[in-house]
């Protein structure tokens, strides 16, 4: 079989695509396949990347969101109320549908996060300023406690005492916030 692009070289790549029952066949030689893939995707060297194609095919169409369950199936599939994503869907595409998915799937999520982030599953970084003051204070205290330990291990006790006072101050402030928070 000859390549359908150049009609010169024998076709080396055969690709059949079936979309909604409509079948398209593509037969290309290596040279033309390379050319085509360069135009389609940005990796100039790796030629046809079937993984990319597959990932594209797995992408869930929005019309697919409402699972067409048979009325006889009793078992309720856990889904997000805001974007109607189900957990199996998430596993398939590896992306969440909206911010609420994190809450909806929290029970299933922990092992996933642990695996992805070497055992971590709680945030320890930046906090948006608009989020309530307490969270900032608590993070500040946690950070100070870490440096306190560092100072003690380096036997810099004067510095450590200062940090300890600062922590006490902040803790008092935190307690005050809770009391007068209403």
């Amino acid at each position: 079989m000859l390549c359908q692009e150049c009609n010169q070289r024998p076709a080396a790549l055969h690709f059949t695509k079936i979309v909604n029952g409509e079948k398209t066949e593509v037969n290309l030689c290596e040279v033309c396949a390379q050319e085509k893939s360069e135009m389609l995707m940005f990796n100039g060297q790796s030629g046809f990347n079937f993984n990319n194609l597959l990932a594209g095919l797995l992408n869930i169409d929005p019309s697919f969101q409402k699972p067409s369950q048979s009325p006889f199936q009793q078992e309720e599939v856990l889904h997000c109320e805001h974007c109607s994503m189900t957990f199996p869907q998430f596993l398939k595409i590896g992306r969440f549908g909206c911010a609420h998915c994190y809450e909806t799937f929290k029970d299933q999520l922990q092992p996933v996060l642990r695996r992805l982030h070497s055992g971590n599953w709680t945030h320890n970084g930046k906090i948006p300023k608009r989020i309530g003051g307490d969270l900032h204070l608590r993070k500040q205290i946690d950070d100070l406690k870490v440096s306190l330990q560092e100072c003690i291990s380096r036997e810099e006790f004067e510095k450590a005492a200062k940090i300890r006072d600062e922590i006490r101050n902040l803790e008092r402030k935190l307690a005050g916030n809770v009391g007068g928070g209403e």
Binding site: G94, R95, F96, A99, Y102, E103, L109, V112, L113, L116, H117, N120, W121, T122, H123, N124, G125, K126, I127, P128, R130, I131, L135
Partner: peptide
């Protein structure tokens, strides 16, 4: 902008490989 942020998980991202700091 009102960012999607959770006390426990940090900045919420579409893919869980980026959640937390998103960095």
């Amino acid at each position: 902008i009102q960012y999607a942020f959770d006390e426990k998980y940090g900045y919420l991202t579409s893919c869980p490989t980026n959640v937390g700091t998103g960095i």
